[in-house]
Design a protein around this nucleic acid. Structure first.
Length: 490
RNA sequence: GGUUCCGUGGCCGAGUGGCUAGGCAGUGGUCUGCAAAACCACGUACAGCGGUUCGAAUCCGCUCGGAACCUCCA
């Protein structure tokens, strides 16, 4: 399939022309959330980043199978010696069934992703639903001789793997350095080397999330689920694997090792990693406790927030930075994003009313091509947005009668700018009040404004201003135009 | 300590050898009964110091500052 899409491949640390393994089809896997807590701003970034990629690939004509997992088992608590499962710990704290916790936060995650207008993936597999597949991979790796059993647990032999393959090819690590610098952790006696990682962990007696296997009653290791589920749904080799940069090592490095041994080939063509969202220059994250949940953003209920910010403001804020750059959170930046977002939406609204002229004052194809170039250049959404603002300038000029497009160009331009704004960037006009159910309200406001127009015609400024002021108090924004006035409800 | 990355005008944020994105804020103006909105004009910024080059924010070196990963993390 023809395209000019270039994406930055973390594996080669270069921008590369994108070509899919099977022409016309793309397999894409993105690491989803671990559902033991409320989604925060950091979760929004990969969801939105890869949502853009998904939308754009679809737009280019690819049939995309987009798999984004839900991690509901398997990750060990950072400083717990007994290997207690995160989900389980939270469950005990809240006296809920582990799967109840999983369900609750999964629903929350879905709900907030919907608000952010993130498209649902094609498949959203759960780790707990793929224990058999994970165990099959453990067996394969055992048979290949790259894993060993130790007291009911199974570990991947990184040192042996590195003799034939390159452990560290993705993250740029050197095994010898890792062996020297990795600090000693408890429970490491079972492992031959500090760098070895668990494929299967034997459950301690109090561990309730457990599954039977020939090794022990236990649960799958840290990194296995992604290898299992990506292989199952996308095949042994697929096109794109995405996730946050913090997953690059060790998670994705281990994934490569596992899949390479299990399937005998490199699993992924293009690795893509989004950067972190920072707060006061530091990563926003669970471990630092400095995260702000999406709910807190939408309601304004966090001490660092001046006020609430809408889902589309958050989306626009994230898209105004390139996905591989860090983006620093601040109220000022968010408010600037909100205004910019409104400017774009208002421009699109104005465009609906623009009438075609005889001449075309600017080259629509040229403009459209620049938009494509921005997207093709490793999804450069900030540059695309800059072009969209240029489009808004054209729109405003046309509305002011200072420029125009002929009928054909106007239609082309409208389609193009709406496509980039709504379909590719996934923006929605949150202030769209013209929906059903508002008919009566619309007519009432229109009536009041008609009265005001009459008052204005009679130079009865007192009445005219009274109507405007009272409406403004109720939250309406009144904009006078040359043939009347427009309004919207804030 | 190791590996990697970054430091751009008041703020956010693109660019990455010559053609000086964009948004927000600010100032002046046009329009308007006033206002809002819109439009027009205005800011020569690239951490510091050297070097390469006809020419560097962009390449190289050093210095300073910051971050990420090395441990669960989006």
């Amino acid at each position: 399939m023809d395209n000019n899409l270039v994406i930055y491949n973390s594996l080669t640390r270069k921008k590369e022309q994108f070509t899919s393994i099977i022409p016309g089809h793309v397999g894409m896997y993105v690491c989803g959330p671990t559902v033991y807590g409320d989604p925060h701003l950091g979760h929004a970034r990969p969801a939105i980043t890869f949502d853009i990629l998904y939308r754009y690939l679809n737009h280019l004509g690819y049939k995309v199978r987009y798999v984004r997992n839900i991690t509901d088992v398997g990750h060990l608590e950072a400083d717990s010696d007994d290997g207690e499962d995160k989900i389980e710990k939270k469950a005990r704290l809240e006296k809920l069934e582990p799967m109840e916790v999983v369900q609750y936060y999964t629903d929350r995650y879905h709900n907030f992703m919907d608000k952010l207008n993130v498209k649902k993936p094609s498949i959203e597999p759960r780790a707990s639903g793929h224990i058999i597949e994970q165990l099959q991979i453990v067996d394969k790796i055992m048979e290949a001789g790259y894993a060993y059993e130790s007291e009911g647990s199974v570990y991947f032999d990184v040192v042996k793997y590195n003799e034939k393959y390159n452990y560290g090819e993705l993250s740029g690590r050197v095994l010898d350095d890792l062996l020297n610098t990795t600090r000693e952790l408890d429970g490491q006696t079972e492992k031959r080397h500090s760098v070895d990682f668990a494929l299967w962990k034997k459950a301690s007696p109090e561990h309730i999330m457990r599954w039977p296997s020939k090794y022990s009653e236990g649960f799958p290791g840290w990194h296995l689920e992604c290898s299992a589920m990506s292989t199952k749904y996308l095949g042994e080799q697929f096109d794109i694997h995405g996730g946050g940069m913090d997953l690059l090592f060790p998670h994705h490095e281990c994934e490569i090792a596992q899949s390479t041994v299990a399937n005998g080939k490199k699993p992924v063509r293009y690795w893509m990693h989004n950067n972190m969202i920072t707060i006061n220059g530091q990563k926003m994250g669970k471990s630092l406790g400095n995260f702000i949940t999406l709910e807190e953003f939408f309601t304004g209920s966090h001490k660092l927030l001046d006020r609430a910010y809408s889902p589309m403001t958050i989306r626009f804020f994230i898209l105004q930075a390139h996905y591989r750059s860090t983006v620093d959170f601040s109220n000022e930046a968010l408010q600037a994003a909100e205004k910019g977002y409104r400017r774009l939406m208002d421009g699109l609204k104005t465009l609906e009313k623009v009438k075609p002229g005889k001449e075309s004052g600017f080259n629509v194809d040229e403009w459209s091509n620049k938009c494509y170039e921005a997207m093709n250049d490793d999804l450069n959404s900030p540059v695309l947005i800059a072009h969209l603002f240029e489009g808004v300038k054209h729109i405003n000029n046309m509305a002011a009668g200072k420029s125009s497009l002929n009928e054909e160009d106007l239609e082309k331009f409208r389609k193009s700018i709406e496509m980039f704004s709504y379909d590719i960037l996934g923006l929605i006009d949150e202030e769209d009040t013209s929906g059903a159910g508002n008919t009566v309200l619309n007519e009432v406001v229109d009536l009041l404004l008609k009265l005001r127009l009459e008052a204005k015609a009679n130079k009865d400024w007192a009445t005219a201003d009274q109507i405007r002021d009272e409406l403004q108090k109720l939250g309406f924004v009144i904009k006078d135009t040359k043939d009347g006035s427009e309004w919207e409800l804030k």
